[in-house]
Amino acid sequence: MKKTAFSRRSLLASIFGLALAGMIRPDIAHAEDFKMGLLVPGSVSEEGWNRIGYNALKGVEDQLGAKISYVELQQNPASFEKAFRDYASQGYKVILGHGFEFQDAALEVALDYPDTYFLISSSSIHEGNVIGLNTDTSQPFYLMGVIAAKMGQKAGLVGGMEIPPIQQAFAGFKNGAKSVNPDFPISEAYIGNFTDTTAAKEAALSMISQGADFVVPNASGATVGGYQAISESGPDVRSFSIFSDFTEVAPNNILGLYVADYAQGVVEVVRSIHDGTPPTQNVVFGLKDPKVISFTFRDDGPVSVPEDIRAEVKAISDKIAAGEIKTDAQ
């Protein structure tokens, strides 16, 4: 026993000496203790929302040296709570629930793990160690609505589930279109999930058959079904890519891209937690954050947005960023 105790003391003394000599960096040791988990409502192999969450996790690993883990889940609140508890009980400092649907489970679990930060995507909450990270998608969708009303005759919006972030995005689109033409017709439908690509495709085709010539799907993993319908309907039906580039799915229909570099935004929030200065309120990314939100036009397609409309959209975007236009008013 004495020999073992002596060996342990010698080992500790050696480690301490190496640290003093600069051979073991304290920041590296700290980084190895910092762990982040991710909960996604589907597969990270799919382009779109789930992949964005995974990219955020990898960004934290690459830039902060954190240990990371993720779990793919179905739409089951009980599994959400279990996954949060599993990570928190294993000492994970940060857990990102990638979607508004994770909020209730996080609030329940957070009470038992006050030293863990629960980040919730697409949420406006801030209660203790539960912090919402919300990209104001109503802002870029407002710009899409302006373009649709100027270039089209009728629009269609296909959503996954009727939850606040998607409702907010669609409100922005409708407000943008109505700012151009108060009587511009817009149809709206929800498929009730984020995985059924066939349902998203059928909803989009139904809208197109009723005269919609500008269609935007917003249904996470199921979104690709909407773009398939748009592509199959010919170049007269137009859209914008959202979150990821779907140009290969609908090469003759995409007018441009709205991309949120949400991943880097998450990295910066996690960095603040890592450094001991966590956010004191919910985080909202918008057009004022050009490193996070990008809205660009496409020039290599059969149809493009005319220069005069682009200039007008740029002026509107600047006003939104300055807080002069409220985009999500119901």
Rank of each mutant, 00 (worst) to 15 (best):
A21P: 04
A13P: 06
V180Y: 11
I316E: 00
Q210S: 14
F243L: 08
I230H: 02
Y113M: 01
K3F: 08
I68K: 02
A83W: 00
D183P: 11
H126I: 09
A110H: 01
P217K: 07
I325A: 01
M151L: 12
L143H: 08
E324M: 03
L64F: 09
A222S: 05
D86C: 07
A171M: 14
A148C: 07
S179L: 15
F170S: 12
D27S: 14
V109A: 02
E324K: 06
T280Q: 12
Q63M: 10
G323Q: 00
D328T: 07
L12F: 04
R85K: 07
P302Q: 11
V259K: 12
D115R: 02
S220D: 07
S187G: 14
A169W: 15
A260K: 03
A222N: 05
V284P: 10
Q210H: 15
Q63P: 07
T137D: 13
S122R: 02
A66D: 05
N55G: 12
D236P: 00
R298Y: 12
F297K: 11
G301E: 15
L257H: 10
V60F: 05
G160T: 15
S304E: 13
G48P: 06
I186C: 15
K58T: 11
F170T: 10
E162K: 14
E307T: 15
P41Y: 02
S121P: 00
E108R: 09
V216C: 03
R25I: 13
T327Q: 00
K2I: 11
A105Q: 03
D27V: 09
V40H: 00
P290A: 10
N129Y: 11
F6L: 03
P278S: 03
R298H: 14
N50F: 01
V224D: 02
S272E: 09
K35T: 03
H98N: 00
L57W: 01
Q281C: 10
L157H: 12
P165E: 12
A149V: 08
D115M: 02
T4S: 07
V269T: 08
V94A: 04
L38D: 01
G226H: 06
V71G: 07
F240I: 09
V237S: 04
